[in-house]
Computed example of a mutant assay.
Amino acid sequence: MKNFTSWSFVLCIFHLFTLSSCGNEKQLEICTEILPVRDPSKGTVLRNTKWREGSIIKVGFINGEEVYRQKVRLYAAEWEKHANIKFAFVNNGPADIRVSMNPGSSWSYHGNESLRFSQNMNTGETVAGTNGPSMNFGWFEPSLSEVGFRRVILHEFGHSLGLIHEHQNPTAGIDWNKPKVRAYYRDKNGWDEAKTELNIFKRYDANLTQFTSYDRASIMHYSIPVDHVNNPAHAVAWNTTLSDTDKSFIAFVYPRTPPIREREHSSHHGHQGIGTGGGNRGGDIMREENKK
């Protein structure tokens, strides 16, 4: 994976925490970006992830029960109501997004990176080519609530359109309790300070991303427990639907001017990626997420 210099991959990791504002024990879903070995703050790996407006993006299933496939089709279509793209689910032949349902984590490649990379299902490594999955749902099971299905499917397909995590919005301004957060991820995930900085505290460069003002209601935001911030107002509960800003931003990134058309592989390269949150929403977009 260290040899690749133009891909982004998001991995969801989750741990238990009690959200004080709710008083209910829930699972904290953390999507961890695995980036090439270079300075991620420069945003170079966030480029060229945007699909061409009007694209018909073919989605195929590598495995998974039909009942879960139906849920993916249902909730992925929510993005189509607001963006000038269409997800066409295919039963055979090549697919632009390849969905697996292997137990473990949930993750997705950003935008059209799925045209160039996939995961080796034996090793878990990113490899060039499209022989493996480009998206995975790792916790689909009968006990998962309908809200849980909706949340993770919306989130992962947001990443597949190029959306980044909202807490890394250039204008987020979250007042983190950094010692507490560092200790948490050290103990729970085994992260060193550099990895916590990259995945939690780092905000993307405003000059290299498209974004709107920070949207704490975004589907691309994961929960932030109250003890991870100095200001309780900065805690974030679970978001389970597209926010108004999610809808308006994705409509801005994928405007409805061009007609829907079959995607040509060559047409998807050379387009800037996108990100949500911040003053200009429309630059490098990428986001991801959760478990029940």
Rank of each mutant, 00 (worst) to 15 (best):
F9M: 10
V10Q: 05
I13Y: 15
S20C: 04
G23I: 04
I34C: 05
P36H: 07
V37K: 08
S41T: 15
L46S: 07
K50P: 02
R52L: 08
R73H: 05
E78L: 05
E80C: 00
H82K: 04
A83I: 13
A83H: 13
K86F: 00
F87R: 06
F89P: 02
D96V: 02
V99N: 03
N112I: 05
S118D: 12
G124M: 15
T130F: 14
P133N: 07
W139N: 12
E146R: 01
V147F: 15
R151W: 02
H159G: 09
H167C: 15
I174R: 08
V181Y: 07
D187E: 10
D192M: 08
E197L: 15
N199A: 08
I200T: 01
I200G: 00
N207H: 15
T209Y: 12
Q210K: 03
R216H: 05
S218R: 10
P225T: 03
V226F: 14
N231C: 15
N231V: 08
H234T: 14
A235D: 09
V236M: 03
T241P: 12
L242D: 09
S248C: 04
A251V: 04
V253S: 02
Y254S: 03
R256M: 04
T257H: 12
R261S: 14
H265I: 09
G270F: 13
Q272L: 06
G273F: 01
G275K: 06
M286W: 15
K291T: 10
K291P: 11
K291M: 09
